[in-house]
């Protein structure tokens, strides 16, 4: 999958989250890591790529097709994607099973038995089958994130977008969630992942987009990026993050 961003600009009030970000991945990129310091625009870029946000200027194209900017078109695009955020993804009033089955029924038009079967299948795949009827508050943070991943995967998304999915978790839970993401990456799922887990990104990503201050400072194949980053900022960031891990 080829992702291309042209002159992407997105502001929130007076804050420029993205100011003219530009990048282009290779034609066969599958796991794209968005790296960079906090506040650099990773989350905003991820939301723009997934059509959760529409940029004021610029455009994104996916395999040569430009993503729509109108609400109807953006909603249709969002329905093809799967999202997982930092935390508080799940609907607290619904069980883990209902969290997955409800969008399948009401958004993707599945019948109730089909949606339930698909939800069970995913919960089982993510090792949560014994927690199907628990509410999110009865699950650990890691279980919640795995349930959120299950929900995102249920409609077989073209693209799975993960926004720092482990940054609210302790190391053990981080491990269990990263295991799941690695399996997905190895099974061929298209993924865009914003993260600070550098060593994990090094293992799974095949393309890296490095952002700082709302601009893309480096966009290159993962092997090149991790062995010889061209940009001095990226280099310092990598050194700083790998110091203690």
């Amino acid at each position: 999958m080829k992702l291309e961003g042209i002159n992407l600009t997105k502001t929130f009030g007076s804050h420029h989250a993205l100011s003219g970000a530009e990048f282009c991945t290779s034609d066969d990129a599958r796991v794209i890591a968005l790296l960079g310091p906090s506040g650099g625009g990773k989350s905003t870029l991820l939301r723009v790529l997934g059509c959760l946000l529409v940029p004021e200027i610029g455009s994104v194209s996916m395999d040569g097709e430009v993503l729509p900017h109108d609400e109807v078109g953006a909603l249709a695009e969002r329905r093809k994607n799967g999202f997982v955020f930092q935390g508080y993804n799940l609907f607290p009033h619904l069980t883990a099973l209902e969290n997955i089955a409800l969008p399948l029924r009401s958004v993707h038009g599945m019948t109730a038995p089909d949606a339930c079967a698909r939800a069970q299948e995913l919960l089982e795949r993510l090792g949560l089958s014994s927690h199907a009827n628990k509410r999110p508050s009865q699950l650990s943070g890691g279980q919640q994130q795995r349930a959120a991943i299950a929900r995102a995967l249920a409609p077989k998304p073209r693209l799975l977008l993960l926004d720092e999915p482990t940054s609210a978790l302790d190391p053990v839970m981080t491990g269990e969630v990263l295991d799941v993401i690695r399996e997905l990456a190895e099974s061929g799922q298209n993924i865009v992942l914003a993260t600070h887990e550098i060593s994990f990104a090094r293992q799974v990503a095949d393309w890296v987009v490095f952002l700082a201050e709302g601009k893309v400072v480096e966009s290159s194949a993962a092997t090149d990026f991790f062995t010889q980053p061209k940009n001095p900022l990226a280099k310092r960031y990598l050194e700083g993050l790998s110091k203690y891990r």
Partner: peptide, 19 residues
């Protein structure tokens, strides 16, 4: 974050309110 999750799973605005 709940509203964003609702948008992310593909709910329209009426669906977001309803569900």
């Amino acid at each position: 974050s709940q509203r964003e999750s609702a948008r992310a799973v593909g709910f329209s605005v009426p669906q977001t309110y309803r569900y």
